[in-house]
Write a protein that binds this DNA or RNA. Sequence first.
DNA 1: CTTGCCCCTGACGTCAACGTCAGGTTTTAG
DNA 2: CTAAAACCTGACGTTGACGTCAGGGGCAAG
Lengths: 125, 125
Amino acid sequence: MTVTEPATEPLIRIGEVARGAGVSVRAVRYYEQQGLLTAERSPSGQRLYRQDAVTMVRFFQQMYAAGLTSQRIAELLPCWDAGHTDADQRAMLRAERDRIQAKVDDLQAALDRLDEVIGITDTHP
Amino acid sequence: MTVTEPATEPLIRIGEVARGAGVSVRAVRYYEQQGLLTAERSPSGQRLYRQDAVTMVRFFQQMYAAGLTSQRIAELLPCWDAGHTDADQRAMLRAERDRIQAKVDDLQAALDRLDEVIGITDTHP
DNA sequence: CTTGCCCCTGACGTCAACGTCAGGTTTTAG
DNA sequence: CTAAAACCTGACGTTGACGTCAGGGGCAAG
């Protein structure tokens, strides 16, 4: 039993990450280019990711869907894995949160408008 | 009393529409180009809009914010002012409605994730 | 008359998250 | 060994709702 070695988890390649997270290989490379994801390299130059890269990519997608830019996501990553933030980071997080909340409200209003139109048209069959 | 004339409302120019709706003049021209808005023309070629153009533009903004394209908005305009729809239109309306609802859910999930991060970081001051 | 403001028509620029193609290397299955 | 599948690095293309610039017209106030 070698206690010094923490049971090396098998690294995965970019294709597996992409399939696992439901995105394209191109997208995963793009995330690296944006500083969101780092990968080791095999001797031949292929990217090797840890298992949790899939989770990370899913998280990126969720943030993108919420309207965050790559830069914002990069800014909040330290909070994610450091477990603490400074004042600026907290301010940023709250600002984004408020922006998303406002967007939710806007969408809900738009939804009501559409329902209104549907409702009007449904009353005249 | 001339019953034949419906009390001609004063037409407004593009700048007033833009200011009234809080968008740029360029945007209003774009909406016309996309077939969302029609305008009369003065003898000198200037666009003349009815008062309710402001309301229309606000509606466009709301739909854009909800992720609809110009084409989709153009498609649902007949429903808006005709007061009835055919099967295809109703299907489209429902599809967009569902898409927006899904987006709301996604945003809410993203919001929860951010709150999670904020919560974690707040517990370590 | 001219100054200033608003309007017009093109037409090119922007931004972000990728898509896609070219041309070449590596890994894997049989 | 060989062919297919997967990976690599550039680098240009896409999409949508506008921004912005160029060049020019019209019209009321002073």
